[in-house]
Design a protein around this nucleic acid. Structure first.
Lengths: 233, 233
DNA sequence: ATTTTTACTTAACAAGATTTAACTGGCCTC
DNA sequence: GAGGCCAGTTAAATCTTGTTAAGTAAAAAT
């Protein structure tokens, strides 16, 4: 059996951390949460992780301290910091403490996934399974090239179209919550972004109309579900 | 045994210099530190360096003075300046004193590495272990000779074309941020340079149009991604 | 020394992507 | 079945990217 990549996520904002875990899970990562630096350290000593994502600002022990401690265990586990946007000093401090990368808040979850995968690619070389082509009924959707094809026509999708369709395709025949999609792709789930997402749902529906077995349905008040016939993996 | 590239780093902020050394070391460079211009000069007379990275603002003897002195030893050792972002005058002075390139603070370490490697590529021609030939679908891209070939046609690329394509090729199938590219290649990420980069993206797309599996796609508001089929290493 | 070539930048405009706005209709509750 | 919220659609506005051509400056050639 294939081993899942294991991520240790230290973040004191529980909202955020639950959300991130959910998303990482959907992407096939196993994620353990720690609400502060001390808990993070404890978790790190008990389990073997492939990657650590540490908030810089945390109670009890901040991310920088924690990173140093992790490095002291002479671990070469890659570390990604989450920092507030302006804190250039944090970033420097972070690199000194042995960080591999950092992301400034606010960030979209896609961004996090992207960095995680970039690091896994660099370090492990393998282990990134990251599906990049989905088969949806008669459609083929290449997330790398941002191309949706059916029969012999290829349609180039825009970035947002790709992001949204990727999210839906990663959860075919399962519901994706509106807010989850908004926060994943648009970062903020305010009124206007919600309208914007509506617009993109409309666009995707048009793009997907050539196969009657494929479509996006709305679950009132909850979210959307991409419907497509099951295919062999 | 392969000789390491030797870098002389003159920088009075010890935090920063230690950090840079660590990073350069990780990238396979040997780095000597000097905390001020005089120490830098002394070090330079004693050792042979492949490249000098000088902070402009330093106690005792500033980077400009030091560069002049280094040039007086009729050395052709490449020099990179570190300057504060706003100090346009420094940059002019620096070039007058014989600089090869400069980086404005704050900069990312990737940026520094990239510049160092670009210079090594230009000057030494050798010694950079960094991959110097990329295989992009049916294309072969020789960064040393600045030649892009497909089938039996060879196209000579200009310096800027080469730099941009190298940056993209070094991150195939991954996004390169617009600003990163701008700051790395054009040094400053202002409006006009951004337009200029657009122009070069267009040129590269034209050059790459003979293999449908290769292309540069835009990630709206973020950056570019060079798409190419995966090849065995 | 003058012309020619080359690399690159600036300008101007066209096309594309995304968001905002305005309006329409559906669904859900009471 | 009326009122309120949620979703769908379309078009306009805004912002980003793409393209082409003209402009500039330095290098190379004559």
């Amino acid at each position: 059996m294939e081993e899942k990549t294991k991520i240790l996520l230290c973040e004191d904002d529980e909202n955020l951390s639950m959300l991130l875990r959910e998303y990482l899970q959907a992407k096939g990562y196993h994620t353990d949460l720690a609400p502060d630096g001390e808990a993070g350290y404890k978790a790190f000593t008990k389990e073997k992780y492939d990657i650590c994502v540490l908030d810089v600002m945390m109670p009890k022990k901040d991310g920088i301290e924690l990173a140093k401690d992790i490095r002291n265990l002479n671990s070469d586990c890659p570390i990604i910091f989450l920092t507030a946007k302006t804190m250039k000093e944090d970033i420097l401090e972070g690199f000194k403490a042995g960080a591999d990368d950092y992301i400034s808040k606010p960030f979209s979850m896609e961004e996090l996934i992207f960095r995680v995968e970039a690091i896994m690619r660099r370090t492990k070389g393998k282990k990134v399974k990251e599906k990049d082509t989905y088969y949806l009924g008669k459609y083929t959707f290449d997330t790398q090239r941002q191309i949706l094809s059916i029969a012999d026509s290829q349609i180039k999708l825009t970035t947002k179209e790709t992001e949204l369709l990727t999210l839906l395709a990663a959860n075919v025949n399962e519901m994706v919550e509106r807010n989850f999609a908004l926060r994943t792709i648009w970062i903020d789930d305010n009124y206007f972004n919600a309208r914007s997402m509506d617009v993109y749902i409309t666009k995707l529906r048009k793009l997907l109309k050539d196969d009657p077995d494929v479509g996006i349905i709305n679950i009132h008040g909850k979210g959307y579900k991409l419907i497509a016939p099951k295919t062999e993996e």
